[in-house]
Design a protein around this nucleic acid. Sequence first.
DNA 1: TTTTATCTTGTAATAATTACAATATAATAA
DNA 2: TTATTATATTGTAATTATTACAAGATAAAA
Lengths: 140, 140
Amino acid sequence: MKSNLGVITEKLKNNKIRLSHQRLKVLEYLDENRIHPTVEQIYNALHDEIPTLSKTTIYNTLNTLSEAGIVKSLNIEDNEARYDIRTDEHGHFKCKKCEEIYDFEVDMDKVAVKDLEGFRIFSKDLYFFGICPKCSNKNT
Amino acid sequence: MKSNLGVITEKLKNNKIRLSHQRLKVLEYLDENRIHPTVEQIYNALHDEIPTLSKTTIYNTLNTLSEAGIVKSLNIEDNEARYDIRTDEHGHFKCKKCEEIYDFEVDMDKVAVKDLEGFRIFSKDLYFFGICPKCSNKNT
DNA sequence: TTTTATCTTGTAATAATTACAATATAATAA
DNA sequence: TTATTATATTGTAATTATTACAAGATAAAA
């Protein structure tokens, strides 16, 4: 499976963000692990390869990248941010049992929305909660 | 404007939750101040009236009430929970300028959702972000 | 290669939330 | 009403996520 390093560096260059080793590794990790990881998870995954890596760097990197619109930060429960390399409009389903987060396609324009005349809308977050098929089948 | 103390106590009794002074005050505050407040805001508002009130109590209360489905906790940005006494399905718009949160009506069933066959869905959170009309009109 | 602006790192600070034990209180029974 | 008891409240301390900051390191431009 070929990595998307080319696409990643291109995105950074377009946004005039320096191509540091750490930034590339964080983005590569997000690209290859579509699990909507927390900072902790990213840190644990990259720490072996980059022993000097600091958690502050991951926070700085993700803040820079979300401001540039290259990654999307998710505030889905638990007061711990998660990060998604997909920035196109889609929904997130979180399983209450296994805690896994699934992407799903959604047509936000079909949401019937009254009460928002005169509101300028920049972004839309849609979170569903429930039990995923895997956990539904694991019943006692 | 008559308060809904009757409705509130009824809800607690139905859920076998004790009618403590603190719980009633927190619920009354949420009912009369539809601003989706943080724990901090609730604490500041009630502290004058109940000088011994502890922040831990507010956390405990809100956790109990959300588990019972009497209030809804919102994870809308900033890693600081907000609380809503409305528990029916509706969306939340957060203004990026004034930080105010607005309710809006939404028909979630109209959201075209593929990819969720076999998923049992318990709840749906919809958050919009942008600029509210008040702030749009405050332009330079 | 040199320069310089910016990044990374480690530590310390901040902020939100929870754990816990002692005291207080609501609900129940007498 | 009073006594009992299970549960709630409180204050403090602990935990966890995130940010602030300054010194050293590095990517990009000259």
